[in-house]
Structure formats: structure tokens, C-alpha cells
């Protein structure tokens, strides 16, 4: 089956940020939450329920997948599960970002948005 990635759009803010956080490689849940908090300068703080609720739906929609259980280093926390982006997830992310940039372009054209120099 090849579901239409467009059916997933628009993404919620949390889902979008989870996808963004996973573009650098696989991560476990806590690392995802941490990265979201850092990249949004604390604006989005995902609580455990919000984070894993979203991950559950993203797993079901095949946006992300759990990595195969790795050989564990001695200090690896047994509870940790790692997630990574699927090809489908990557495609959805691209489409969403294109959609957002179109919106930004429109906003610029209407002079609603100004570039902040050096930001």
C-alpha cells in the first residue's frame, strides 16, 4: 500500500517538531523532547502524554518506526527505545515544509513578515 502523504497534512506542531528532531538520526523519547524544547527556545514543552500520544499515532501512520533492538552497551538504559524517520515520514515532512514556506512567501509578498537582520 502506498498511502498518500498529502493525507497527513497539515501536521500538528508537536508532530512537525518530532519529525524535525529525527532528521539528524535516531533518538529516544527524552532526547526528542529535549531537542524540541531547545530548538523552540522553550516555547513548546511536550509533556510525556503529549509526546508519546503523538509517537503512537506517528508509528501507526508509519511516519516513524522503532529501530531494531540494538546490542545494548552495559550502561544503556533497558527501557530506552529509539525511533527514526521512515521514508514516508521524510516525504511528509518535506511536503509540510514546502507548504509552510509557501505560506511564508505569501506573507512576505504582503509585507506581513520582515526579515530580521542577523537573526
Amino acid at each position: 500500500m502506498a498511502p498518500d502523504p498529502r493525507g497527513q497534512l497539515p501536521l500538528t506542531a508537536v508532530v512537525l517538531h518530532i519529525l524535525l528532531a529525527l532528521t539528524d538520526g535516531e533518538r529516544h523519547g527524552y532526547a526528542i523532547a529535549q531537542e524540541i524544547e531547545e530548538t523552540t527556545a522553550g516555547e513548546i514543552r511536550t509533556g510525556p502524554g503529549t509526546l508519546y500520544g503523538s509517537i503512537q499515532r506517528m508509528l501507526a501512520a508509519s511516519l516513524v518506526e522503532e529501530t531494531a533492538p540494538r546490542r545494548r552497551a552495559a550502561d544503556d538504559d533497558e527501557r530506552r527505545r529509539y525511533y527514526r524517520l521512515t521514508a514516508f515520514g521524510k516525504r511528509v515532512l518535506e511536503l509540510e515544509l514546502q507548504r509552510l514556506s509557501r505560506i511564508v512567501r505569501v506573507a512576505r509578498a504582503k509585507r506581513l513578515l520582515h526579515d530580521t537582520v542577523g537573526a
Partner: peptide
């Protein structure tokens, strides 16, 4: 997800 949530 219980364990992971508790960890977070």
C-alpha cells in the same frame, strides 16, 4: 509507553 513516559 508507560516506562518511557515515567522516564521522561
Amino acid at each position: 509507553f508507560g516506562d518511557e513516559m515515567a522516564e521522561l
